[in-house]
Nucleic acid binder design. Structure first.
Length: 835
RNA sequence: GCCGGUGUGGUGGAAUGGUAGACACCAGGGACUUAAAAUCCCUUGGGAGCAAUCCCGUACCGGUUCGAGUCCGGUCACCGGCACCA
């Protein structure tokens, strides 16, 4: 009989639809396990071949957990608000809600096609009013606690999306999504006070089972640095506050720099003698896009403020003040004390503008370059009472002095900025606040949630940078919940990251009409035991949702400080590069590719894209080989954490393996007994697969099962031998496993599906071979192998090794000085020439 | 520049400090077949040799060790993140 994957997969998917074997039961007595994958954005393109990688991995893990007796929650949903859908809708004149519905249907079909064990009764859709009601509710709680506030500030503005972006959404000066130029604009925006949680977001990573690179990247992004904040007097009378991580170098501060946007620049305009030059510079800086700032990088520019000088508090010296865009208004105090001798940027600026360079830490040559080491090797000089100290001693000493003088204190700063939370677009959650001329911003009463997105015909972009909602006067004009007077609704919507910041909680209790999540459900299921997702979300979704969770913890909605106990991450799936130089033979052809595609041509594999024609559609793979082959191959492709390249040839290998498994049914002798010669191999395989699934090493788990199948082909097998193999296969290739389970008569015998059986257990004793092959080394070089009974005493091992005819040649005329025996593995004979 | 990671056959990739290359893909050979596909079996890191067997091999240089792909120091290359953050 042939392995008819199409019929088998259809049959079992329909069966599972009926019996719902993946339903999670809140409050069950079994131990719980909550496995989570990042819910997809339902794009028009459908499922990408990258999606099945993490989904299959967690599907395998949760299926195994079920077989191990856990009550498993493995949910799925759709993160469906967002710009691509809105842009698609505008272009094709379809309402985004319709586009979304259609895309979700397609994604659902594809996910079911792949046989995932999701609990389909808990599906969450962020655009569903019964869901975003609670997204809005959480926003109102943030507002009530002062963590949501509206402020005018320079923001990242995408010139193509016509929308603001969070810092996390700007990559190398361009829009993360569309790649267009990002400029700075002054706009009034809703902000979330994530910086208030900066320290906790660092501290609570401790003890979490997150892979190291996720922790490192988050800590990096939050960017904590310790130093001092101190005041400089100025000849204008105002005090200038600066932040420095090197208070020890205060004696070397020979000038100051303000960001061009620093408020004092305007304030001092009357005193500034070179007004025109200063104004011109400020204007130019404002015009520069982030991209230009990054491009122009190290080339320092600036203007000296003539007529105002700062006073170094430690020695009373008057020093010049500059403005320059190498000082950022968004970090620290927007003003610095410059110590050119010990800071590379200050040094470059000082050289260009002829500022004085005073060495205050010995150890370098400050005429040649800035000396920036902050360890014990440098000794303070030219620094009054700090002279002779190391840098490490000088920092607390000067900090103490600043405190005593009342002009400074120790200070911690973070690179993390508050989260720009409003978007000037239609397809997002409406922000549930109104503005009243009398009362200011007023939150909607919770009873009025959800505030529905108005149904309108036109949601085209406006050119003035306002949300499309601002054009809908019927919706915008309302009454103030506070005084009853006329008021206007907020017309900006929330960013895509809003709905995804708490969706894992909704899965626990998806139909609750009274709370975002009920207490019993949250206390039973929380926290998520294992969350897998992309590295690209480390400083976006993962950070944002940890922040929201901590806030919900503070207001008593959840009982854990952290949402996710464990976080792993998968590598991307790349496609073959059609322009790779390795594809062609001659030097001329290679050069032609290099000329045309540059660096691109040097890479064998690249991101899949329509324009390169290397996109793999899961539908096509499933049609040609079946879902089980797709699942198996995507797990076998390589180390889960690393990027991997899709190979059409290698898929066939996965299919071939499943064919070989299928044929075992007919090959197996009709006996329920385990064949003695297969027993050890079976137990070893159970052990290997069990351990490898736990550590996400699906590729080697599959390799072990392949090896066992090869053994069965060469040695023959019984129905009893096949039984545990089917159970091991079942999380990986559930359709094939169930069919074999049924056809092999196991289903009838146990009255259960394979997935409902207990996970096979191995007997450690039976994983041990009675006879071992041991390596024999002479002076560390492999010379022979010998076969001995397991756990043979060292004397026997040495005797057998010395007696081996290959080994003897190396012992001839030599004196045995030492032997090293590694039990059951290896013996090393150390010899030297006999005297 | 800073942080994190990687470097192993023609290819994807395996190897708690202990027989490098498991398992696959590709390729080659054989069986079956009128033939092809599929399937099954065999070979497959490089080099020398009729053979037994030997030599060389995990980016490069050095070190620790009886023994290093693995640990330590240094170098190079590539990938990911951050980047004028004071």
């Amino acid at each position: 009989m042939k392995y008819d994957f199409a019929a088998i997969e259809k049959k079992w998917q329909e069966h599972w639809e009926q019996v719902k074997p993946y339903a999670a039961e809140t409050g069950s007595n079994k131990p719980k396990f909550y496995g989570l994958v990042e819910f997809p954005y339902p794009s028009a393109a459908g499922l990408h071949v990258g999606h099945p990688r993490p989904y299959t991995a967690l599907d395998i893990i949760t299926r195994k957990k079920r077989m191990e007796g856990y009550n498993v929650l493995f949910p799925i949903g759709y993160d469906a608000f967002g710009l691509p859908t809105e842009n698609f809708a505008i272009k094709n004149h379809i309402h985004p809600a319709i586009v979304t519905k259609r895309n979700i249907e397609n994604f659902t079909r594809q996910l079911k096609m792949l046989g995932y064990g999701f609990d389909w009764d808990r599906v969450v859709d962020t655009t569903d009013p019964s869901y975003y009601k609670w997204t809005q509710w959480i926003f109102l709680q943030l507002y009530k606690k002062g963590l949501a506030y509206k402020t005018t500030m320079p923001v990242n503005w995408c010139t193509s999306c016509k929308c603001v972006l969070a810092n996390e959404e700007v990559v190398e000066g361009v829009c993360e999504r569309c790649g267009s130029e990002v400029v700075r604009r002054e706009k009034s925006q809703w902000m979330l006070g994530i910086t208030k949680y900066a320290q906790r977001l660092i501290d609570d990573l401790d003890g979490m089972d997150f892979i190291d690179r996720v922790k490192a990247q988050q800590i990096n992004w939050i960017g904590r640095s310790t130093g001092a904040e101190l005041k400089f007097q100025t000849t204008a009378g105002d005090e200038l506050l600066v932040f420095t991580t090197r208070p020890d170098t205060l004696f070397g501060a020979t000038y100051m720099v303000l960001a061009p946007e620093h408020p004092y620049v305007k304030k001092w305009m009357d005193r500034i003698e070179n007004r025109e030059a200063v104004l011109a510079y400020v204007e130019e800086a404002a015009r520069k896009s982030d991209f230009e700032r990054a491009e122009l990088n190290k080339d320092k520019t600036g203007v000296r403020l003539e007529g105002v000088r700062g006073i170094n508090p430690v020695n009373g010296r008057e020093i010049p003040i500059f403005i320059s865009d190498y000082v950022l208004v968004t970090y620290g105090t927007g003003a610095i004390m410059a110590v050119p001798a010990h800071d590379e940027r200050d040094w470059a600026f000082a050289r260009k503008f002829g500022c004085e360079i005073i060495e205050v830490v010995k150890g370098g040559n400050v005429e040649e370059a800035a000396f920036t080491l902050k360890d014990d090797t440098g000794i303070m000089v030219n620094s009054g009472f700090l002279d002779g100290m190391t840098v490490k001693e000088a920092i607390p000493a000067i900090t103490k002095w600043l405190e005593e003088q009342g002009i400074g204190r120790e200070k911690v700063n973070y690179k993390l900025r508050d989260w720009v939370f409003s978007r000037q677009r239609y397809w997002g959650e409406p922000i549930p606040l109104v503005h009243c001329d009398k009362c200011g911003w007023v939150p909607l009463p919770e009873s009025e949630l959800p505030l529905l997105l108005p149904q309108v015909d036109s949601y085209e972009l406006t050119d003035d940078g306002e949300s499309p909602l601002s054009k809908m006067s019927d919706w915008v004009n309302t009454t103030c919940p506070c005084c009853g007077g006329p008021a206007r609704r907020e017309t900006d919507t929330m960013p895509q990251w809003a709905g995804s910041s708490w969706y894992y909680l909704r899965y626990m209790d998806p139909h609750n009409e009274h709370e975002p999540v009920g207490k019993p459900a949250e206390e039973y299921w929380g926290p998520v035991d294992w969350y897998n997702g992309g590295m690209e979300h480390t400083t976006l979704h993962l950070l944002y949702s940890r922040f929201w969770h901590k806030f919900l913890y503070d207001i008593g909605v959840v009982h854990t400080k952290e949402p996710y106990a464990k976080r792993t991450s998968h590598g991307m799936i790349l496609g073959k590069n059609p322009h790779y130089v390795g594809n062609v033979e001659t030097e001329e052809e290679k050069q032609a590719l290099l000329d045309k595609y540059g660096n691109q041509a040097t890479r064998p594999a690249v991101k899949m894209s329509k324009s390169l024609g290397n996109v793999v559609n899961p539908d096509d793979v499933v049609k040609a080989y079946g879902a089980d082959t797709m699942r198996l191959y995507i797990m076998f492709i390589g180390d889960f954490e690393k990027t991997a390249t899709w190979s059409d040839e290698a898929v066939k290998g996965a299919k071939r393996f499943l064919d070989r498994c299928w044929n075992l049914l007919e090959m197996a002798k009709d006996s329920a007994a385990v064949t003695p010669e297969n027993e050890s191999a079976i137990h070893k395989t159970i052990k290997k697969v069990t351990e490898d699934i736990n550590t996400l090493k699906m590729n080697t788990a599959i390799a072990a099962m392949m090896a066992l199948v090869n053994d069965f082909y060469s040695r023959g097998l019984s129905r009893g031998d096949l039984e545990p193999l089917i159970l091991l296969l079942s999380p990986f290739v559930p359709h094939l496993a169930e069919e074999m389970w049924e056809l092999g008569g196991y289903a009838a015998r146990y009255g259960k599906m394979a997935m409902q059986m207990s996970w096979p257990v191995y007997d450690e004793a039976k994983t041990q071979d009675a006879v071992r092959e041991m390596a024999v080394q002479v002076n560390g070089k492999l010379r022979s192998t010998i076969r001995l009974a397991a756990d043979a005493p060292d004397e026997d091992v040495i005797a057998a090794a010395c007696a081996d005819h290959k080994v003897q040649r190396y012992l001839d005329g030599m004196e045995l000085v030492k032997t090293i025996v590694v039990k059951n593995k290896l013996i090393n004979l150390i010899v030297k020439p006999a005297k």
